[in-house]
Every structure is written in C-alpha cells, then in structure tokens.
Amino acid sequence: MPYTRLFIAPLLLAVLSACSTYVPPPSKPTATLVMYMENATPTPRMRIGRAVAFEDQECGAPRTSHVINSAISMEDVDEIPRKQIAAEQEFTFAIEASHVLWGGNSGCSVTATFTPKAGQTYDARMYTRGNSQRCEMIIVDQDNHEVPSTRPAYSCLPGMNGINKNGQGWYKAISVSVTIVR
C-alpha cells in the first residue's frame, strides 16, 4: 500500500492554542517592542516565531505566560508584529524560533528581562546560528544603543526536548507515516 510521510510543525498547535494574549496593564505607561528574528543558516524551511511575556524573572507560575505575538514565515529575516508593553517596570519575555526541517524540527529561545521607559521604542533582535544550535538576542533602544538586560540560566520557553539553557538550541527527529487504503 502506498504511504505518505508527514513532517509536523512542532509548535504550530502551541502558537495557535497558546496561553492568553499579552495586554499591558490599563492606565499604565507603555513602550513599543519590535521583534526581529534572523537565521544565519539560510535554507528553505518554515519558521514559527513567537514572543511570550512572563510574570517575573523566574518565568512565573504556569498560568502567567502571555503570548505577545507570533508569525509563520519562510524568510531568512522575519519581524514579529510590534506590540505595546508595560513600561517603567521590569518586563520579562522570551523569543523563540522553531524551524520545520525535513526529518525533524529544530528551535532555540532566549529569555530576557529589562525595564522599558514610557513612550520609547525597543528592538529585540534574535539571531539563530548553526542550524538552530544556538541563538542570541540583543535589545536596543530607539537610538540603537544596547539596553541593559538580565538573562536567566534557562529559557522560560521549553523546546520539544524539554527545558533548555538560554540560547541553546534543540532538535527533534519527527516522522509520521500515514497509510492510505484504497
């Protein structure tokens, strides 16, 4: 009998059915966060990117994560749509890029905390290296100056293999066989 191999996007369901959407506190000062992902290993692949806010630097309780925004693309450089975030207080978030590859999926995420100033615009730039084996993120202000931030040892966003060190990638071989009966 003929069969077809399927390769499943690992976090597509997570992106579509993730936790609640992030909304800054009402009547509080806000800043703008623009998020970019750049892949240094250009090959045709689908990329799922998402940014998630957390209650605190310890990643909060399981129900305190909120999706800031997400994007699906095949480009080497992607922008996740900009978002208003809380200002004048610590803001903890993670950016993750997952790649759908032939035979498996890979990804990497970075978590950081910084204190945005009201009315300012910040860029969070994530760079993926070595076919998702590692990634790094810098946060810059609207004058392109790097903003001080702290990073926990482990990312708040787990990969398909569980919790990873901040900026350390993961890979998971996936294949599903489907038998078509005629």
Rank of each mutant, 00 (worst) to 15 (best):
N131K: 04
Q89R: 12
R151D: 06
K172C: 01
A61Q: 08
S155K: 01
T111K: 08
C156G: 08
E55K: 13
R151F: 14
L157M: 09
K117A: 05
A124R: 07
P148L: 08
C108N: 05
C156F: 01
Y127T: 14
I95Y: 01
E75Y: 10
E136G: 10
A118N: 15
T64V: 11
N164S: 14
N39T: 11
T64R: 05
Y154A: 05
T43I: 11
H145F: 06
E79H: 09
G119E: 10
P148R: 11
S106P: 04
S106W: 00
K83C: 02
R47M: 04
S73M: 04
A118D: 06
P116A: 02
L157S: 05
S109T: 13
Q57G: 12
E96N: 13
V181M: 10
K172E: 06
L101C: 06
E75C: 14
V52N: 03
E79P: 03
A94G: 11
G130P: 06
S70K: 03
A86W: 10
E38L: 00
A173C: 05
L101Y: 06
P152K: 02
W170F: 03
C135W: 02
E146N: 12
P152L: 02
C108D: 01
H145A: 15
M126K: 15
V77E: 00
G49L: 07
D56T: 13
E90K: 10
Q168S: 11
E96Q: 13
Y171M: 07
M137D: 02
G49E: 04
F91W: 08
S177N: 14
R125T: 02
I72S: 01
G49Y: 00
N164I: 04
R151I: 10
V140G: 05
F114H: 07
Y127E: 07
I139Y: 01
M160W: 01
T179P: 15
K83V: 03
T121P: 05
E58Q: 07
Q120V: 14
Q84G: 03
R151S: 11
S149Q: 09
G169Q: 06
N161D: 15
I85E: 00
G60W: 03
G169A: 10
D143Y: 06
G103P: 13
G107K: 03
H66P: 08
T121G: 10
I138L: 08
Q89F: 09
Q133D: 09
R125E: 14
I72K: 00
Q89L: 04
P152C: 02
P158Y: 01
D143S: 15
I180W: 12
A112W: 09
R125M: 14
K83D: 03
T111W: 02
V176F: 06
N166D: 07
N39I: 07
C59S: 08
N161Y: 09
A118I: 12
P152M: 03
T150E: 11
Q142K: 11
S73Q: 04
E90S: 08
N144G: 13
P44I: 10
Q168P: 14
N131D: 09
K165A: 14
R47S: 03
K117T: 10
N39M: 13
E96I: 10
D78L: 11
K117N: 07
A61E: 15
M46T: 02
S106I: 00
S98L: 02
G107R: 00
H66N: 12
H99T: 07
G107I: 01
W102P: 01
Q168D: 07
P148Y: 11
V181T: 06
